[in-house]
Amino acid sequence: MRGHDLTVTDVRQHVYCPRIPYYRYNMPLERPVTAKMDLGKEEHESAAAKEARRTLKAYGIKKGERRFGVNLYSEHLRLRGKIDMVIFTPQEVIPVEYKMTSGVGLHHKCQLAAYAMLAEHTCSRTVSRAFAYLTPAKRAVEIPITAAMRDYVRKVLEELRASMEREQLPGPTPYRKRCTGCEYRRFCGDVLTGGS
């Protein structure tokens, strides 16, 4: 794993369950596609089409330019990602991710912080906030991008790289409900049998 770039999706998945990126990089597995993943892709496409017709009122912004599917990269972080949308105003650069969920978890906040850090590198401007747009509720949730969140993203990147370089299977998420719809569930024999 040394020398390879990671993705913002890896960061989000590591926080959700550290086994997901481990399986992706360390095991020769074809990534299974679940019905939830297909539905999520359709929802993203639909949200982007609707977003282009809306005002920026949901974000509390009167004027700004929206760019969709923006590729971001930081050589310093060795991290890349493609964000759903970035809003550019004269004062700010604001990352936005569409989420097919009713709430914003730590993994979503960490993902947005990682995108904010990439946007800073790509656009050469400080990012102080981001938004998760919850598509079921049609509501934007503001996420402050703090120094603590930036530090947490750096810590996750270190953990990810260390886990992959050691080639040692990390422990599963402590939130077993997450295992139910996971595309890698069948590879986690210790979780399926109730072990640790």
Rank of each mutant, 00 (worst) to 15 (best):
R125M: 05
G64W: 00
R129C: 00
K63A: 13
M85A: 14
S128Y: 01
Y73W: 10
L72M: 10
I83Q: 06
P95T: 02
I87R: 12
A114W: 00
G60W: 12
G60S: 13
H108S: 11
L77R: 06
S128F: 02
F68Y: 15
V70W: 00
S124C: 13
K99V: 06
H108G: 09
R129T: 00
L79F: 09
N71K: 10
E75N: 13
G60N: 09
A113I: 09
F131Y: 06
I87Y: 08
V93C: 03
L106K: 12
L118D: 02
Y98Q: 12
R125I: 01
G69N: 14
E92Q: 03
G105K: 15
V127D: 00
G69T: 04
T89Q: 07
S124A: 14
D84E: 15
L134G: 01
L112K: 05
V70M: 05
F68K: 09
G69K: 07
E65A: 06
F88K: 12
R78S: 13
R129N: 04
R80H: 13
R67G: 02
A114E: 06
L118C: 03
L106G: 06
V96T: 08
E97K: 13
K82G: 05
A113N: 08
R67N: 05
G81K: 02
G105L: 14
L79K: 10
K99T: 08
H121P: 06
R129F: 01
L72A: 07
L118I: 03
A130G: 09
P95F: 02
L106F: 07
T101E: 13
M85Q: 12
I83T: 14
M85F: 03
R67F: 01
V127Q: 03
R66I: 01
T126M: 04
K62M: 08
I61Q: 05
